[in-house]
Nucleic acid binder design. Sequence first.
DNA 1: GCTATTCATGTAATCGATTACATATATATT
DNA 2: AATATATATGTAATCGATTACATGAATAGC
Lengths: 327, 327
Amino acid sequence: MVNIHDVARKAQVSVATVSRVLNKSSAVSFSTKIRVEQAITELNYEPSTLGRNLRKLESRLLLVLIPSISNPFYTDVIKGIEDTAINLDYNILLCQTNSNPKRESIYFNLIKNHLADGIISMDPTVNKRNLMDLAEKHPIIQCSEYDIDGSIAYTTINNELAAYHAIRYLIKIGHKKIALINSDEKFLYARERRQGYERALKEFGIELNLSWVYHAESLGFEGGQQAMRQLLNHPNRPTAVFAVSDILAIGALNEIHTNGLHIPNDIALVGFDNISFSTMTHPTLTTISQPMFKMGCIAAKMIINKIQGKKVESIILDHDLVIREST
Amino acid sequence: MVNIHDVARKAQVSVATVSRVLNKSSAVSFSTKIRVEQAITELNYEPSTLGRNLRKLESRLLLVLIPSISNPFYTDVIKGIEDTAINLDYNILLCQTNSNPKRESIYFNLIKNHLADGIISMDPTVNKRNLMDLAEKHPIIQCSEYDIDGSIAYTTINNELAAYHAIRYLIKIGHKKIALINSDEKFLYARERRQGYERALKEFGIELNLSWVYHAESLGFEGGQQAMRQLLNHPNRPTAVFAVSDILAIGALNEIHTNGLHIPNDIALVGFDNISFSTMTHPTLTTISQPMFKMGCIAAKMIINKIQGKKVESIILDHDLVIREST
DNA sequence: GCTATTCATGTAATCGATTACATATATATT
DNA sequence: AATATATATGTAATCGATTACATGAATAGC
């Protein structure tokens, strides 16, 4: 493999001069510059990023931790991260933890080993203690999921308020019997969305019926189906359902159809995330839209600022209620 | 940052001995081994992968080129690649080209720069000429999409045969007027699936009606909707539709519903890929299932073998016709 | 007890770049 | 013309590891 010395020899200059031409770091006379560039072309030389990074003590690689790419919510966030990162000459390493602690530690080692410069964590299942320990020595920010009491900067939406808006809307169009399909409340977003649900009910004088609050066992379609199955068997069936993710909502929608009921006449349905599938269901799904692409861009900017030693502040983004046919 | 010299000093040995302990490469006496390990723990030392990789001239990073992670087909393939790669101590860098040549060249540079050891390309939009040039000097294999005449090893299914099976099945259940929603035929898989479509028709003595062959303008839902809209306006409406991807099929399904027609009574529908959403539609979608996870595992094994200088052969995997409610 | 072999460890080169510092030449200033 | 400054280039240290080779000590074989 041809290296910088070969180029230097061919162009009859020192390696320093070659490096200067490569990095435009200081003045090189026109004639030698041409000579060096010619040598580079003739030898088909490509500088080794490995050597460069070792010297500069950086990898220009960003780790993005997600539970799984199968959830389309992450798709657009990642697009935002990638766009921003590439523009600033960083590449991203997408890491699916599958909520597996062993995987997690592999990826944590990557940053300890200097193979990555920073981490954007979007994984709610990550070990918070380990993450915070790591954040003492390495640049880390959280995206979408975060810790209230942690010292790690984050960008997210106001989950409590978003859920509140969804429920308030259901109440305003006449619903009083509103169920909640939540995910596991070990996740902060699940706790927050539940709080928003409860606040809206309280504010409109509707009593909280705990038997209408379900926790899905999985985050896939089946989770929504299972939860809905139980809600449909409830002696006092709700007239509206708020699911904390579109995937759960779509599972619920499926189950409602299987039972021959009509949406929204028999049951109204609201999801969360505004994934692209939510326009392909029948009826189309009313949902809360998060600014996913923007969130990704901001997360990327935050982590790069952090890597460069700047101070970063957490940022809360706006959400929207997207009203479609399911309500 | 603490380095190998600090450890050596603390343990009162040479850096070579520390490296030996780290890599278990040759005998180190029990007592010094303990001393070194203690120093490592006390100093909280983590070896720099950058330094190691530079010396060993490898990065243990694999590039995976995909057009976009938004297509769920890739999800399981990537899981397979990742599982296999991690077991063999490689990490994967997921690269979305978004069919953007500039992105592509960024990623190609990564391997020229030795920041990655090999490439698995799943991108049908990649510039074939560039890829083949690169393959002369670097380990590259193709997954799912490939080149017939190229010299690059690949793993995929038999697209022609899969399409043939889908169409033969439609014919056997009584359909004669069968439309094809294809994607752009610049993609090899599109050409192959069309060949399978034509072979099945020919074999059963059904004349090819070119006005029933559509090319979707996008690979998203809208592509399927648009194509279906045109098919529904056709004076001689087909009774069955084969779409070359589930996403297109779901778009078509939506359009059929919008027009008040029944699936499968008015129109039968077959997709391709067996993405998880294909069980969530109403009716559920008959489709061709590819062994995505397995394909990913094999692709990863192939590229790692190639990196290690072994000879690799292309592998064709089996597909299945999954019959559901839409036919 | 002397030589041959094995074992444990150290020294220094190496991977491929960047860059502080040194030096030589050309140009500007007086 | 003498000095000051700017420009162009080279030398060598450095980033953090691995490893070929050298060396000294311990053990085995006779």
